[in-house]
Design a protein around this nucleic acid. Structure first.
Length: 433
RNA sequence: GGAGGGAUGUCAGAGCGGCCGAAUGAACCGGUCUUGAAAACCGGCGUGGGCUUGCCCACCGUGGGUUCAAAUCCCACUCCCUCCGCCA
């Protein structure tokens, strides 16, 4: 949620900033008008309530001094006011609720460093990395044996059974088998171990309350992309960001606790409502995938470093896996609702011959903290924390990229060295009967 | 799923329908005393909102209701504790 006080004080700043993401100025003017109306009604309701409270006190005094006539008269007067107060309060609540609903739909202000642009085509490529780049090696040219789709490689090796997934849960719910499943486990175990030095490992619930989904900004706007369990009023989490951001919801943290860093691997559920028919092959786009998330509550001053740390860790994993990747600075038009600044990581996967998004590292300023009401106390008083988070990493696409990139001429797939201990010493995936 | 008990500030813990945003104690912050510390004593000490910056309003698990007036009475829900049932 954006800061209403800021909207009042500098409406033009907000309009310009949100205009960069395509929000119409008239929409913001409407919110401002609602706010003015709300305060007008609020004052009236509060004035009436103050008067009733005062009369009630007088009734009490009159009753104590056995002045029944005065008490009766005051009671009558107060009862009349009560009706007006009830109406005024209802009107106030209605406008307040409209105001809140509109406010919840407004996205965050992009940071100053976020590049201009309308959509993903305007994202700015910051840099690329590939094995040997530091020693002067050119961008990799991939061999023919690496140009096989991962779903075909997987079939040869019997490590993925997409048909079985379809049978169980419908399309885009993958089922991993044998070493394929073990590889997935290795990814998660390795990554979580890498983050242990600074991030507390959390295993949160896979479902969340509506309120929890509201806090990160996934509701109400992206409702159609979420799986709902209506009977129990729960939602399947689309990322561990959802539970982690709400872990300290409604609390005031001690400044000394910050930055408070956590990591969690969870299943992530996404309906992908807007992308039916796109990327339906293999693991490019799936309804359920495992992901390790890095998260931090921090002070505004700590936020840039916290953001940089998450990005560095995600990159370190990609480098450890030996994958080619690029870093994109997302433009204002492509930013997620809650984010002020986002950097995406995309790996190049030679089989499908495409860049695949495997991480998104975002800084939300106090947008989510305001929704979740997470504050910190310092010498200067209390203020909302900043939240930052990022994937390190989303495993389905990493799995695909490793399978394609590391396929050898003999058809086996070399396991990245860092994962070998997590694969029980196994160095290659080979066809098994 | 059934029966009973509970939910009040950072914590513990009072609270009669009427100066109750809330006693008291602890913690914490400041001061006096002290060479220093402890003790003692004095003062301070929740969050949010509105506007005429001094006042007003809201908040005692959540949401409704009764009343001139609700932390207090009534209803529903949530969570915690105890017991029974079921269960990986």
């Amino acid at each position: 949620m954006i800061d209403l006080t800021q909207l009042r004080r500098e409406p033009d700043v907000v309009k310009t900033a949100l205009g960069r993401r395509g929000v119409a100025a008239t929409l913001i003017d409407h919110v401002i008008a609602l706010d003015v109306e709300h305060r007008r009604l609020l004052q009236e309701a509060e004035r009436l309530r103050a008067e009733i409270k005062d009369l009630s006190r007088q009734v009490g005094d009159a009753r104590r001094s056995k002045d029944t006539d005065t008490a009766e008269a005051l009671t009558l007067r107060s009862r009349e006011l009560g009706e007006s107060e009830r109406q005024a309060s209802e009107a106030t609540d209605e406008v307040a609720s409209n105001l809140r609903n509109e406010l919840l739909l407004l996205p965050n202000l992009p940071s100053e460093d976020t590049p201009d642009g309308a959509d993903e085509n305007d994202n700015v490529e910051v840099r690329r990395w590939w094995v040997g780049m530091d020693e002067g090696a050119p961008f990799p040219t991939y061999e023919p044996h690496q140009r096989l789709y991962h779903w075909d490689v997987a079939k040869e090796l019997n490590i993925l059974d997409l048909e079985a997934g379809v049978k169980l849960a419908g399309s885009m719910f993958p089922l991993y088998r044998g070493d394929g499943s073990r590889l997935l486990r290795a990814f998660g175990a390795f990554a979580l171990d890498q983050h242990r030095d600074a991030y507390e490992e959390i295993r949160p619930p896979s479902f969340a309350l509506t309120e929890t989904m509201m806090s990160t900004g996934h509701l109400p706007k992206s409702q159609d992309d979420m799986y709902a369990i209506e009977r129990d009023d729960l939602w399947a989490i689309p990322t561990a960001e959802v539970p982690l951001t709400s872990m300290r919801r409604g609390e005031i943290l001690d400044e000394a606790e910050l930055p408070l860093r956590m990591t969690a691997q969870t299943a992530c559920f996404r309906r992908e409502a807007g992308s039916a028919g796109r990327d339906t092959r293999g693991l490019l786009r799936v309804h359920e995938f495992d992901k390790v998330e890095l998260f931090a509550y921090c002070t505004p001053e700590q936020a840039p470093a916290a953001h940089a740390d998450i990005l560095a860790r995600a990159e370190a994993l990609l480098q450890a896996f030996g994958l080619t990747y690029r870093v994109l600075d997302l433009c204002a038009g492509d930013l997620g609702t809650s984010s002020a600044r986002t950097v995406d990581l995309e790996v190049f996967s030679p089989g499908v011959d495409r860049w695949l998004e495997v991480s998104s590292v975002s800084w939300f300023r106090d947008f989510q903290a305001r929704r979740a009401n997470v504050r910190f106390r310092s010498a200067e008083g209390t203020a909302f924390v900043h939240t930052v988070n990022g994937s390190a990493l989303a495993w389905a696409r990493i799995w695909a990229a490793v399978i394609e990139t590391n396929r050898q001429a003999d058809g086996s797939v070399k396991i990245p060295d860092c994962l070998v201990p997590y694969m029980g010493g196994q160095t290659h995936l080979v066809a098994r009967k």
